[in-house]
Structure formats: C-alpha cells, structure tokens
Design a binder for these strands. Structure first.
Lengths: 340, 340
DNA sequence: ATGAAAGCGCTAACAT
DNA sequence: ATGTTAGCGCTTTCAT
C-alpha cells in the first residue's frame, strides 16, 4: 500500500518549494508570476501520481470546510427528499459536499444539530426552520455564515429565504372548491405557529370569509406515531360532520386523510371532495385522482442553491438579503369536482 | 464576537498543560492517572466557556473524521429515503455525522463519489453498489476502511452486506398469483445485471417453471426520464398481450406501471392482477390496494448500522465479514385476488 | 519568480 | 501524575 503523498513529497520530487506547488494548485500561479513551464510540470506530475490535498489540513488552515449543511424536517418525506436530491446535485457539481439531517421540527434537536454543524465548520446552511432557533441563527449570521431558509422563514430574522405563496395557494384551492359548489369545507392542519401553516390557514379563512361561509378547522397535534393522529382526523371526517369538502394543509396529512377516508368508506368526491397540499404520486394515482397544490420543487431548489452559492463566492459581502416567493399550481383533478 | 478558544487557551487559564486537558477531554484521565480534582476543574471550565475542540485539527492529527458516507441509488426514492432516515438517526446518536449522495446506479459517478468520500477521509461506507466498482472497493478494503453493502452486493467482493432474499420474495409472490388462479403472469423489470434484480427475476422464473407456466418478461432500460420508459411498459401491458397478472420488480416500476394501467383503463384485478416490489403508500391507497413485497426497512437499517458501528469500534480487526439476509413479507391485497 | 518558515489546533510519545 | 514537544499537511507572509 503506497503512502499517501503530501505537498512536500511532490515539491521534493520536483526540487521546488512547497509554496510554489501550493500556489499552482490553487490557481494563483499567474498572480504569483510562476513560469508556465513550472506550472505545466507540476500539474502533470500531480495528475500522474494522483495527488489529492488533505482536506483537513486545508480546512484547519483556511477555516473553510467546503461543506453545505442541509436541515430538512424529515428526509423521508417525499417533498423534502426531492428537494434534497436536487440540492445535492447542484452542490456536488459546485465542488461542495453536503451533510444533512432531519430536524423533526424539534427545536431542541435542531439547536443541537446546528451546534454540530458549526463544530464541523459548515460553510453554509440551508434550513427549513422550526420555531425557537432565532438566537442560534442570529449568532451564525453574526459570524457571516450564510443561511438560507426555505419552506418557511422566521419573521424575526432578516435572512434569505425561498418560500411559496402559502396564503394564496390555499386561498385558490378553497375558491376552487367554492366554485365547484361546495359549501361546508373543512380544513385539516397541524397545530403549529409555523408561518407556512399559519398562512395556509389564513388563505383558507380568507376565501371562506369572502363567500360568507363558515370555517371548520381541525388542528392536529403532530406526533411521530401516526396512529395517535388518526383518531382526531377520523372523528373530524365522519359523515355526521356535514362536511362536503376537505382541504389538507400538508402532504403528510393528505395521505393520512386518504387512509382514513378509505377506511370509513367515504366516497370521493360525491360524499366528500378532497384537496391536499403538495402534489405527489399518491394523489395522482388515487381513485379518483386528488386535486393538489403543486409546489415548484425544481424552482425552489434552484433558487436556494443559487442564492447560497452566490453568497459563498461573493467576496464583497452583500448585506441585502433576498426573499423569493414562488407561486404554486393547483392541479385540479376529479376529487374536487361536483360533476362526478 | 468572542474569539474561538483552543485547547491551549483553556490550559493556560487553568495553569496546566494542554496534554492534560487533551487527555481529560478524551476520557483518558483515569488511564493517565490524572487527579479527580483536576478532571473536575477542567470539565467544569470547559463546560462553562463552551469550549469545543476543532474537528479539523483533531482529524488532521488522528486521520479519523467521525463521518459515515452513505451512497444510495436515489435519495428521493422512498425506499432509500426511509433507510437513510433510519441510518441517520442511529448515526448521529453514536456521535458520527453523515455525508450522503445518490449514485443513480451510475458506475462512473459512483467512482467519483467514492473518491470524494475518500478525500474527506470518511471512516465508514454504506453503499448500495452499482456494478463495476469492484476495484475501488477493494482498494478501500485494503486500507481497512469498513464497507457495508446493502440492497445488493458484489459477488466478487467479500465484505459485509445486508440484503433481502430477493429470489424467495418474487418466488412467493408468483406462487401467490398462481394459487389465485392466474396463468399468464408477466414480469416487468429493469435490464440490469444487478444481483437483486437478477434474483428477483430468478424467483419469478422458478415459480413458473414449477407450475409449467410460460414466462413473459419485459426488461426496461432504465432512464432518468420517465417518459422514455413509458412506451415499452405501455405496449407490454396492452390487453392483447393476454396477460392476466403482472409483477413489477421495483417500486419505481410499480408506480410507473400503475400510472399506465390507469391510463389504459385496465381493470385491476379483473383484467390484470398486479403485484409490486416494495411496499409503499401508493400501493396501500390505490383502488384496489396493491399486493406488494414489503422489505423490513427497520431491520435492514438496524443491521447495517450495527455492523458498521461494530467494525468502527472494534479495535481487534475481525476479518470475518457478515452477510445478513432478511426475509420479506408479501402484503396480500385485493389487486391480486381472483375473487373480486 | 521562488523559497523559508510560521502556525492553524490537536494528539501522543517522551520526559520528568 | 503532569508537562514538553514534535509533528499532522496545508496556506501565506515575508525575504530573497
């Protein structure tokens, strides 16, 4: 097994100093006016022996890790999994590596994870933030570490974020149901102060108010254990509730809701029209196919990574933070049609 | 902004040497017979000022990164996303961080990613291997870097792996269809030499042979772009094919197949019985619910991480490699029932 | 244009 | 039982 070579080995072999090698390797040859010929010799030899700089030594010296930290709510949730995949591709393309984790929307866990990321000297953060991490984020920002929020943001913090227009999304979805002739539209959401959920709730409320309809809201307390959330949704959806339509505020709730609807034998849409947030294979394949609010996943990922890479590379610390709000598309399918 | 403290700062402040601090911090106080009292003082002060060792310096010195590299086929595939999630939890619990990537089953990409992981001095590898990476893996093993394969393995390489009994799984699924009275059972799979797919094909073949039935196999060339794979499946499933049942060899193909079945308006199971590999919400919620081979995801993740952590911690390099083969469960649902 | 040398923060062999 | 010290491999300032 051949010993791993260091920069000094290659310098020795070529009878030059290691700083020259370092400069050449870091593309500062021209700046340092190193001869073409030397550059050539070095790059060729480096290539030949397959020398790779030791990333720890480099990081120790520079303080940069070339790593981006991604914190999603749950990597096994298809929405976040897709985002992660897209970000991953762009990240690696740009020479960064990624470390990621699932926060479970748990503040304490998230704080610990941020600490861990910080210990690892992550260069940039992409976070779908839970509540209560404002102080920690501020302390990151104070150290000029770029942070990009997505899916939601923390109003108290002025940093870049990429979100969708949640209020408008549920507003449109609700209006759609109203236009289809539904009158008793229920809304199932998680009880949470998270902005994206609050806004989704607001959109629903606004639409009903405009049409003088009564809101019927069920807030579910999130629980890792799905079966715990089963009963409240179950009782909310039971026929005696007089609902003729229901809107689920997340894909997770939508899927859970469909399971329950299946079990209760509720006919969709004749007995209950259904609209869910987040488009997703289950919704397309369900019978009847489920109307859903489709988030522009590629655009979200693109914006996130563009903003972050930009911040990472910009030598001039531009202080203005960007907030991108993308619009969604309501995928109208049979589950919300009165005609059926 | 307070300057980040180093071990020497804390040693100075306490008027002791940094090696004592180092030993105490690394739990070698007892071994070094450092006084209880000093240990107490140091830990207390470290706690107080929130000192965190610099991970790069540590890694540079020790050569260990405390990182596990996970390479899945595609993190946005629900099977891999779930595995990743479970591994993530266990990994962080044990003080490791994780870096991960999607290989797309692309040999070239995987080789590059392994190189990248190696540059980052990843301590252990968890890989769902594509073909053609034998040399690279061998070179990892030669350096005593632990590698655990899952989902499949490379026959030429003797290393730990956690897989399921693929042959038996499809064998059982096929027998189930035969017992239900289906005679013309099709099999849709990817054209690949990957072991898990080959074994799934074999299980199907074995079952048919036992019952003197004719095999009807469609091998799809994998393509990132789903629409390209659409036509071949489409034409295979068209009614004139005389199939009365079909078995899909992966969840990806199963979902794709259902989309096409929907479009063609094929009645399940009266016109075509359906069984898919991998259990998955879509299959449970489809009308009728789809019979599927359920992989024991928790057990898979548990075995992987247990084996890896064990290798990572065992000072005595135990050379014997473990191969774990787990069994699956056929979730029988209406899509494969002749009675309906 | 190139080289010498300091030092990033840590561990561990060695000395006391 | 505790302290001294030599690197780990790299970047970068300063000298030439």
């Amino acid at each position: 097994m051949k010993k791993k070579l260091s920069i000094v080995d290659i310098a020795k072999h070529l009878n030059i100093s290691k700083s020259s090698v370092s400069f050449i390797l870091n593309g500062r040859a021209q700046e340092k006016r190193i001869s073409e010929e030397l550059v050539e010799r070095v790059t060729k030899y480096v290539e030949e022996v397959g020398y790779k700089p030791n990333s720890f030594a480099k990081s120790l010296r520079t303080g940069k890790s070339n790593t981006i930290g991604l914190m999603v709510e749950d990597i096994s949730n298809p929405f976040f999994a897709k985002i992660a995949r897209l970000i991953e591709d762009r990240t690696y393309q740009n020479g960064y590596k990624m470390i990621y984790c699932s926060t479970d929307n748990n503040t304490q866990k998230t704080l610990e994870l941020i600490t861990m990321f910080r210990d690892r000297h992550v260069d940039g953060y992409i976070i779908a933030p839970p509540e209560g991490i404002e102080d920690e984020i501020n302390s990151l920002l104070k150290e000029d570490l770029p942070v990009v929020f997505f899916d939601r943001y923390l109003p108290a913090i002025d940093t870049d974020h990429v979100v969708i227009d949640n209020r408008l999304s549920t507003y449109n979805a609700t209006i759609h149901l109203i236009e289809q002739g539904f009158k008793n539209i229920g809304f199932v959401t998680f009880s949470s102060v998270q902005l994206q959920l609050q806004n989704r709730l607001q959109g629903y409320r606004d639409a009903l108010k405009e049409h003088n309809l009564k809101a019927s809201i069920k807030e579910i307390v999130f629980n890792q254990n799905e079966s715990v959330m089963y009963d409240p949704i179950h009782s909310f959806l039971k026929k005696q509730k007089n609902l003729d339509a229901v809107l689920f505020s997340t894909n997770h709730l939508g899927v859970l809701g469909l399971k329950i609807i299946n079990e209760l034998g509720i006919k969709v849409p004749s007995e209950l029209a259904v609209v869910s947030f987040d488009d997703y294979e289950v919704f397309q394949l369900y019978s009847p196919p489920i109307t859903a609010v489709a988030q522009p996943i590629e655009a979200i990922a693109d914006n996130i990574i563009t903003i972050l890479l930009n911040k990472l590379s910009s030598t001039s610390k531009q202080k203005t933070s960007q907030s991108v709000t993308l619009s969604t598309q309501l995928m109208v399918r049979k589950s919300s049609s009165k005609d059926l």
